[in-house]
């Protein structure tokens, strides 16, 4: 009799403990989510208010009525009357989009071809080429800023979209990823292709490319974000305002953070700058996680 009661009491206590644990888990996660969302929320709300509301420091927590006006100002005129930096957000977003697409597609194309050459051909110097590509991992643009800039000046690529993208499209990580994947393609496929009389380019187009679709998508997501978020390189390469990209443009709008800035328009521009890469991560989540965990960087 008393034994059963003990068991029941124990079971009830354990149930209570589990419920308590579950609630604590939810609380921790919700706090985490809020901490991540707080700056975005403030920015989103700020972008719907009048400039004076923010300038006075009355930080609003709920949306205001100026959303259409602020976003239209940001999109068509940019900066706003109180800022010295005035480039329409539409121009900057277009430049960022071009930069991100060209970098992502360029990196994928040249890495795909070089990985194909290294894996499916035997030729003198194969490993030397492979190591030369590999070493570029150790030379990020940040550590060779000035000399690379001088090369760009010599080639007169300053203030061009080519200059903005071309130097960034060599990719050791993408080459390594494709090489790793190509090595898993069974030898029988190559043999079968050869027996059917298909040449290497035919094999590339009809066998390797279709097999690589998921890898291409995953890599594209990662590289698009990489390209969109470039900062130091456009900062150095662009002096022509019509080529300004949105992330660099945004910090130029802020300047030294004067309270008199047209903050509502700046915040609207920040939201616009966030949307494309965040949208890609949220809507292509599966590929994003695959790309991230497989490139390992």
């Amino acid at each position: 009799m008393s034994a059963t009661m003990d068991v029941e009491a124990l079971a009830a206590a354990s149930r209570r403990r589990r419920t308590r644990e579950r609630i604590l888990t939810h609380v921790a996660l919700i706090l985490g989510v809020c901490l991540f969302a707080l700056p975005i929320w403030i920015t989103l709300i700020g972008s719907t208010h009048e400039v004076d509301t923010i300038g006075r420091g009355d930080v609003p927590l709920l949306p205001g009525a100026e959303a259409v006006h602020n976003y239209a100002t940001a999109w068509f005129r940019g900066g706003g009357s109180r800022n010295t930096f005035q480039v329409p957000a539409s121009t900057m977003l277009f430049n960022s989009l071009m930069m991100a697409l060209l970098i992502a597609v360029g990196k994928i194309a040249i890495s795909f071809l070089s990985a194909f050459a290294v894996v499916f051909f035997a030729f003198p110097g194969r490993m030397i080429f492979f190591w030369m590509i590999f070493i570029t991992l150790m030379l990020p643009v940040e550590v060779r800023i000035i000399p690379t800039f001088q090369v760009m000046t010599d080639l007169s690529l300053i203030d061009t979209m080519t200059g903005l993208t071309l130097p960034l499209i060599a990719s050791a990580t993408a080459t390594l990823l494709f090489r790793q994947f190509f090595l898993t393609i069974p030898d029988e496929y190559v043999e079968a292709a050869k027996m059917d009389g298909a040449g290497p380019l035919r094999f590339l187009k009809d066998v390797v490319l279709p097999l690589s679709v998921t890898n291409l998508a995953a890599l594209f997501v990662i590289l698009f974000i990489y390209g969109w978020n470039q900062y130091l390189w456009p900062l150095l390469m662009v002096t022509d305002r019509s080529l300004e990209t949105v992330i660099v443009g945004l910090t130029k709008m802020i300047g030294n953070g004067d309270a008199q800035n047209e903050w509502n328009v700046i915040m609207a521009t920040a939201v616009l700058a966030l949307l494309p890469p965040v949208g890609v991560v949220v809507f292509m989540q599966r590929w994003f996680i695959k790309g991230l965990t497989e490139t390992e960087k």
């Binding site: 974000i225 978020n229 992330i247 945004l250 920040a270 700058a273 966030l274 991560v281 949220v282």
Partner: peptide, 9 residues
């Protein structure tokens, strides 16, 4: 999602 936010942003 904050992964997609540029460091400067």
């Amino acid at each position: 999602w904050p992964y997609a936010v540029a460091p400067a942003l």
